[in-house]
């Protein structure tokens, strides 16, 4: 635990109260998770609503909204776009995930510089900060694919290449702990302390179970988190330097994980410990 519960964490607890008030004890992590599943009680919805306002607002040096951003299904088409990311984009000649594409649009349509956008990527849960604009925007775009099947395209050679590199990186041991992603996520039924891990390399169902619920509201952070944050967090735990937002390594890993999670029905925003 990182200290006292923040207001948002308390809000989450209060919203869960009906489930807890029935008198049954929550004995296992699964029961705890089940109690978190009331979608309308997910505090992440507030962040999604803020993301929608930001998305439609005229912002930046070019005083433009993001409504003409093309997430792969044409300018302004958000429905189902996240379910088919990462994908290859002709205009940037590279594979982009949700958050990378968002940066591209904020630079091209709104005139922000990448440097100013990257100054503050993630809200700091220790300082009780609200989610950043980037986190809110990404969540809003992602939620437009809620209920759809994860189906990242593998038609373009660069999409296949990105996924293949991601698989190699998933198994690459690096850093002072000698860990790779597969150290924790390469065997069935393992856990760290009490946290279940999931075998994303060997067990497609495990990959689907995870990939269908991101972006997710993390109760322990009191914040909505996206895949860029999840992978930064993993590499921080591996005692590596900060991995860059939208960097090729992160996009490759997301390409691999999204392909492993293919077919999962998205349930977002998710909610987790």
């Amino acid at each position: 635990m990182r200290g006292a519960l923040s207001c948002r964490q308390l809000a989450g607890v209060v919203l869960l109260a009906p489930a807890l008030a029935l008198g049954q004890e929550l004995k296992t992590a699964d029961e705890y998770r089940a109690a978190l599943q009331d979608k309308f009680a997910n505090p992440g919805n507030l962040v999604v609503e803020r993301g929608e306002r930001l998305f439609k607002e005229k912002r930046g040096p070019k005083n433009a909204s993001l409504e003409q951003c093309d997430f792969g299904k044409g300018p302004g088409v958000l429905k189902g776009a996240f379910a088919e990311l990462p994908r290859y984009f002709k205009d940037t000649d590279r594979v982009e995930d949700l958050e990378s594409r968002l940066l591209t649009c904020m630079v091209r349509l709104q005139g922000f510089t990448p440097e100013e956008l990257k100054k503050k990527l993630f809200a700091d849960q220790r300082a009780n900060e609200p989610n950043t604009d980037l986190e809110a925007l990404a969540a809003y775009v992602a939620v437009q694919s809620d209920g759809m099947k994860l189906n990242p395209p593998m038609k373009h050679p660069k999409e296949r290449e990105m996924r293949a590199v991601g698989e190699v990186l998933f198994h690459t041991r690096i850093g002072p702990m000698d860990f790779s992603c597969s150290t924790c996520h390469g065997q069935d039924g393992k856990r760290i302390r009490l946290q279940e891990l999931g075998n994303y390399a060997g067990n497609r169902a495990d990959a689907q179970k995870t990939m269908r619920t991101w972006p997710t509201y993390r109760v322990s952070h009191g914040l909505l988190r996206n895949m860029q944050h999840r992978l930064w967090d993993c590499m921080w735990q591996m005692r590596l330097p900060d991995v860059d937002y939208g960097s090729p390594m992160v996009v490759a890993l997301i390409s691999y994980l999204a392909d492993r999670g293919r077919g999962a029905v998205l349930d977002i925003p998710g909610i987790k410990r």
Partner: peptide, 10 residues
């Protein structure tokens, strides 16, 4: 993969 590692950390 090696190149991506080189390019991806701050």
């Amino acid at each position: 993969a090696a190149k991506f590692i080189e390019q991806s950390f701050l």
